[in-house]
Computed example of a mutant assay.
Amino acid sequence: MPYGLITTPTEKLARPFGDRISKESISQQAYAAIRASLMRSRLRPGQKLVARQVAAELGISVTPVRESLLRLVSENALALDERGTVMVPELDFARSIEIRDLRILLEGDGAARAASLVTEADIAALAATHERYLKTEGSKDFAAALEENENFHFGLCRLARSPVLFSIVQNLWIQFGPVLSYLYDGRSKPFHGQTHGHVLVLDALRRRDPEMARKAIGDDILIGGSALLDKLPKTGV
């Protein structure tokens, strides 16, 4: 009798390896991987995404990758050029300002909520994330620094205990994530000579001060974003 099929009339069919892997689950994993690459600045503005190449890197077939790319196009996270090639969109100045201002509003609200709910363990975990960020930035591992920066912002947002808010913030990061790679292009690092915004956020959380936390994360986004704006095309203004 085939392995895993031994049963009695009253038993359910055994599944020693868990549920079957469906085509839909592979597509979802591909979508999640590409989405994370956008948020973490692994993909740069203007970069072309060829389904076959992406599939080879992920070790899966082309079909779920193609479906994932088109799904992200429909969500305005990716774009199609005149030849139908999928690419990471180039954000113009006006759209970047809009996304930045929405992040200040929404992440600020999340930080204010977090300040009223946060525990000492939560603060310690977020402080450890910031320390990893400083370490990776200091060693010029900028890809890891960008990832830890995302971890800090998302970690703070999760502390608001608002899944809807967190989902909206994630969608903004999908659109804005690729341009964050411009933060490390040989010029001065963000917050050079200033107290880092993350430190001010942590101070606000320790004080359990919602408005201080709102302002701190807003200033963090504003100061970090200012280093990007002069590198973007001034179209749409």
Rank of each mutant, 00 (worst) to 15 (best):
F166S: 10
L229S: 05
L180W: 01
F17C: 02
M1E: 13
T119Q: 04
L159V: 01
Q170H: 08
L159M: 14
R20F: 11
G18R: 02
A111T: 15
F93K: 10
R132V: 03
I26N: 03
L180Y: 02
L69N: 10
A227N: 11
L165K: 03
P89Q: 04
V201R: 06
L38R: 05
E148N: 02
T85A: 11
A144V: 00
G59R: 11
L117A: 15
P64L: 06
G177R: 05
I223C: 01
I99Q: 06
L222K: 10
L146N: 03
T235Q: 07
R208A: 13
I123W: 04
V199C: 00
G59D: 12
F152V: 06
A30T: 09
I6Q: 07
R42T: 02
P89S: 06
T63Q: 10
K189H: 08
A144S: 11
R83E: 14
V73P: 03
I174V: 13
M212H: 05
E148K: 00
K140I: 03
V86N: 02
V179G: 01
H198T: 04
I6T: 08
V88Q: 09
Y3H: 13
S74A: 15
L172V: 14
T10Q: 09
P178E: 05
A36H: 13
H196D: 01
A124F: 00
V237L: 15
E90Y: 06
F142L: 07
G218N: 08
P163C: 11
H198D: 00
L49S: 06
A127N: 08
A128R: 15
L13P: 03
G224Q: 02
E82C: 05
E150K: 08
N149V: 01
Q47Y: 03
L183D: 05
F154I: 11
A111F: 14
P210L: 14
K23S: 12
Q170L: 09
R208H: 15
A112N: 13
L58P: 09
S41I: 02
L156Q: 01
K140N: 04
G59Q: 12
R158M: 02
L159A: 03
V65T: 07
I34D: 08
S181M: 00
S139L: 01
K215S: 13
A55I: 08
G84A: 04
A125G: 09
P89W: 05
E150F: 14
S74K: 14
F166Y: 07
A51Y: 02
T63R: 09
Y184M: 01
V237T: 09
V88N: 10
S68A: 15
A55E: 05
I26Q: 02
G193V: 08
A94F: 11
E98Q: 13
S116F: 00
C157G: 02
F154P: 00
V118M: 06
Q53C: 00
D209G: 12
S22C: 01
A127Q: 15
E148Q: 07
L222Y: 10
A144F: 00
F142S: 02
